[in-house]
Write a protein that binds this DNA or RNA. Structure first.
Ligand SMILES: [Mn+2]
Ligand SMILES: [Mn+2]
Ligand SMILES: [Zn+2]
Ligand SMILES: [Zn+2]
Lengths: 147, 147
DNA sequence: AGCATAAATGAGAATTTATCTCATTTTTTT
DNA sequence: AAAAAAATGAGATAAATTCTCATTTATGCT
């Protein structure tokens, strides 16, 4: 069952170790952006705290992990897999859920044009962008306090 | 000279104290988004560390301070003044500078439409959004290491 | 202006999150 | 299988933010 993670590790020529497999499996299994808190919970004491942070840095170094900060200041990580295309994030201000969102191609094109204007205006070289959306999940949410 | 900050405080009915005036003056004077580090430097020891954080929270509470995290994980704050319209941010990955950017009205309209689609799709109530752009300042920049 | 009350401050302790150190264990190479 | 290199675990350390509490300051009312 850990074939996926072993493959990922060997493809990036980093040595195959138990903590790395466990962290990758947890991320693959969860499938969504996850806070480091939640990740630690999922892993229990199978991976030492210091090792978890080290492994996450390793994954960032080989460019298969994306890290960002949620509006309530927790650190969120997500795997960047082959089929993982450019996307953005939607945050629930209540329960803290983070959802992947793909915006339309037309929109991304318009944003790119807009960014070109910004580059010129500020004499910047813009290499990346991020669109973040904040609100409340109105669905049946077990975690949302508001229900 | 501290009339601006006194006015801001009284308009929001929070008591007028020296630390609050000093922090507001520093923010007004700098005029741009500023990291808490830099703000502490500007203030020297005129305001205690604990008080600075408290005052920033006070300003957040009365909705005249915006706080966000820069890509290098420093906390950035900026005043929200009357004339301060909806805008976004551009970050230099090298020197850490944060620049206010207004995007075109057409773009914001398109983004709003895009967000409406997202709301429906995920059954969310989206109340706010943020566009962040990352890159390098190519201008003469005293702080950029690359030069 | 002076007093009473409520609110804010300063100093440092405590908490939280992340990194670092180093002896030991595991992985890789030979 | 042995040697060399790399990674790990446990705990120490560091940085950022919040908390505690005794003292000071601001406000509202004589
Ligand atoms: Mn994502
Ligand atoms: Mn701004
Ligand atoms: Zn929710
Ligand atoms: Zn720069």
């Amino acid at each position: 069952m850990s074939q996926n993670s072993r493959k990922i590790l060997s493809e990036h020529s980093v040595s195959i170790t138990n903590p790395r497999i466990l962290v990758l499996e947890a991320l693959l299994d969860f499938g969504n952006p996850i806070t480091i808190d939640e990740l630690q919970l999922k892993l229990g004491d199978s991976v030492a705290k210091s090792t978890l942070y080290r492994v996450l840095n390793d994954l960032k170094k080989i460019n298969i992990l994306n890290e960002f900060t949620s509006p309530d200041n927790s650190t969120v990580v997500e795997l960047i897999l082959e089929d993982h295309s450019h996307h953005h994030h939607l945050f629930c201000s209540d329960c803290g859920e983070v959802i992947d969102v793909e915006l339309s191609e037309e929109f991304e094109i318009m944003l790119t044009k807009e960014i070109q204007k910004v580059q010129k205006k500020f004499n910047f070289e813009i290499t990346d962008h991020r669109v973040e959306m904040f609100g409340l999940c109105t669905e049946e949410c077990a975690n949302c306090k508001k229900n």
